[in-house]
Amino acid sequence: MKKLIISLIAGASMLGALNIQAQTLINGAGSSFDNPAFTKWFSVYQSTVDKTVNFNYQSIGSGAGQKLLLSETVDFGASDAPMTDEAMAGGPGKILHIPVVAGGVVLGYNLPGIAKLRLDGDTLVNIFMGNITKWNDPKITALNPGTNLPAQAIVVVHRSDGSGTTFIFSDYLSSVSPVWADSVGKGTALKWPTGLGGKGNEGVAGQITQLAGAIGYVELAYAKQNHMSYAELKNAAGKFVACTLETVSAALATATIPEDFRFSMVNAPGDNSYPISGASWVLVYQKQKNAGNAKKLVPFLKWAVTEGQKYSSQLDYAPLAENVQQRELKLLDTIAF
């Protein structure tokens, strides 16, 4: 018995020693929207590409991810909103934005018996402003000929926690309505003119499924998993499109993406583009201080934006377009260590 224990301890400590020698630990923090993708990537990458790298990702929110990157606590941050010039000035070096995933935000609703609902930007702004309060409002019925909408009160549900999903949604409302842009604006948390706040996607989804007449925004993956009905939206080209991986990818392909990759893809042109979608970025310093970690991090990021896209699309993230992937690889090559 004693021998067994001793050999176990010896074995464990040898394993420990091996770990210390060979493993590199990469720390990341930020967006919870990205978390499922990272989890999948880490496990695939470790088992098929590089066994000597360990990842530790803290899904604590985009704002916190930015803060930890600025204080150089983590090797990379992840954010659902691009950093502002002002925020980036707080760091010790130039920060690169690497888009890694893109996703759609859908408008889930609860109207028993109504399987298909069409909305446009203007109507949506008015609903979330509290100007349209009944489902049979002429503005909504005009978009849905043949559908018998009830005279039910609309209950608006939004996120109460700061969230990248809110950023994408309010980015869209701001882009279609100057009134919204002036009076409310875009951000991860807003001063909502009306409605109930639910905590997290699950909180919003819970309210929508329970309250007849409710409408609220959730991530596509979440709506699909919960079999929620969600509205078709009129895009910039005037076509009604449902949110799918294809229509989000289409928006990503037609969006204008500047050199630094800090772009917004809401209301993208193109017949097949879903209007409320957004990307999420990995944030890294162009000049890496820890060469050992950077040597492992850069190949991983290159893998994630190319090969990794295959795995993230299984999780309802829209894959990055080929030309975007190539541009990102070039940007990743500029990282120095």
Partner: peptide, 19 residues
Amino acid sequence: APGYTLSSVIANEFNEATG
């Protein structure tokens, strides 16, 4: 009517509070 508390707003918004 819905309300809000001091501790709830901290828990809800601190993670994403930038600036």
